[in-house]
């Protein structure tokens, strides 16, 4: 499309889908087949009785690409509804990370202190290691990881973003 803004934007989509076999492959295949980016993707069933799953996708692209992604997702047969939470504004995004840090002495104490500041919980400990559980916006988690990488971070696991719209109305 000509004369469209070319800046790369980052958007979070919430997609309600029928939890049928292959539905996740369909969504991922759409992104790879059309050359769209996936920054993160989470999926889980949210209504067992109705067999509905919710997928949260964080993606980047120009305005035109973002619009296309929404239209293409909406076109998939098992998709109930797609919402661009970023475009709608007022949404909350959270991510969970498990962070394994090793060290002794001063470094171990410092890791513990910083975890306290970030509100991370210790979910496993040995005499020379911790596993922290931290929940927050992606930037907070980035900050925490950045500090921990200087204090003996050896392993990291992140869920990717989940997001929900603020206010009293449902999906």
């Amino acid at each position: 499309m000509t004369n469209a803004p070319q800046e790369i934007e980052r958007h979070t989509f919430a997609v309600l889908v029928d939890n049928e076999p292959g539905v996740l492959a369909r969504v991922i295949g759409l992104f790879s087949g059309r050359g769209y980016n996936i920054e993160s993707l989470t999926v889980a069933e949210v209504d067992a009785a109705e067999r509905v799953s919710r997928i949260t996708i964080v993606t980047t692209g120009t305005r035109m690409v973002i619009e296309q992604i929404q239209a293409q997702l909406d076109r998939l047969v098992p998709v109930h509804r797609v919402r661009d939470l970023t475009a709608e504004g007022r949404s909350i995004e959270r991510e969970l990370a498990l962070v394994k840090v090793t060290g002794t002495g001063e470094r171990r104490i410092e890791a513990m202190r910083i975890a306290g500041i970030f509100g991370a919980r210790v979910v496993d400990a040995t005499l020379s290691s911790f596993v922290f559980e931290i929940t927050g916006a992606s930037e907070e988690i980035e900050d925490f990881i950045g500090l921990m990488s200087q204090l003996g971070l050896i392993e990291l696991c992140r869920t990717g973003t989940v997001a929900i719209h603020r206010g009293a109305t449902g999906f």
């Binding site: 499309m1 000509t2 004369n3 619009e67 296309q68 239209a71 909406d74 076109r75």
Partner: peptide, 11 residues
């Protein structure tokens, strides 16, 4: 009939 055709190539 297909919303994904709109604004795909041409505004």
């Amino acid at each position: 009939i297909d919303p994904s055709s709109i604004n795909k190539n041409v505004h």
